[in-house]
Nucleic acid binder design. Structure first.
Lengths: 133, 133
DNA sequence: ATAATTGCAAAACGTTTGCAGTAAA
DNA sequence: TTTACTGCAAACGTTTTGCAATTAT
């Protein structure tokens, strides 16, 4: 990739992801910035998020809808089937030993994703929650 | 969901996923069956895969493109960044203890997904492989 | 006869891209 | 001045949906 210049848009997009605790989607970043930057386009958000993810400044969380994480160190996620949100599970550290285990059959492992699915603490609280899965 | 009737299409779709070892996508199932069932529609494939996944007969593997797995018991996957394929990692058993660990903060865990990313044994072999990530 | 299921085609959805204009270096 | 970057709008690939016809019960 070519050498890059400063861009006001990229800076704002980056700050939005870093300050957010909700692992925002591209659309969420766009909606958050649109009031302040009315001419911002969704294409620009996608382009910059993808670019920063490639350069390691952000992390992509694959799923039905891609989310972005300002925390690039390996860690564990919880996807709530009630509210649809994604949160971190700091308690569960990344276990690099698993990668070595997975290489027994000749594969070369770069990383692994460990994602829990269930009800986040907030949703587990309110009873009668109708799963949106 | 309402009581369901037998459907030749659903049966073929189910058998295709069960017999396949490649964790096929909806499109792959459709392409496989089209020669034998020329009037089959992609919408029917999607409808039936989704229905069987809800009823527990199949498993959905979320990703950029959704794949389906005939093996509904919890197990580990390897997504190859070279060929794009998904394969099973039988060596790594599902660790239910992790779910209990993840519940420390008040969450209610139903399951977890453990997916390794890297080069599958086949792709790790051939050198000069250009990653398609 | 009833209603679950189908094929079809259109729409919805998230995402990417081509292009001409704008702005950072 | 150069060219990375933008906004815009059109295109893309995947998935869903409305509907009238079909088919299992």
């Amino acid at each position: 990739m070519q050498r890059q210049r400063f861009s006001h848009q990229r800076e704002e997009i980056y700050q939005t992801v870093m300050k957010s605790h909700s692992h925002p989607t591209a659309e969420m970043v766009y909606q958050h910035l649109k009031p302040f930057m009315p001419r911002l386009s969704l294409g620009t958000v996608y382009r910059n998020l993808h670019q920063m993810a490639q350069e390691g400044g952000l992390k992509e969380i694959a799923g039905p809808v891609t989310r972005f994480d300002g925390n690039t160190t390996p860690h564990t996620h919880l996807r709530c089937i009630c509210c649809g949100g994604v949160s971190d599970l700091e308690e569960l550290a990344y276990d690099a030993a698993l990668d070595r285990l997975a290489e027994q059959n000749g594969a070369v492992i770069i990383e692994h994703h460990l994602t829990f699915v269930g009800f986040c603490p907030a949703c587990a609280g309110k009873k009668g929650n109708s799963s949106q899965l």
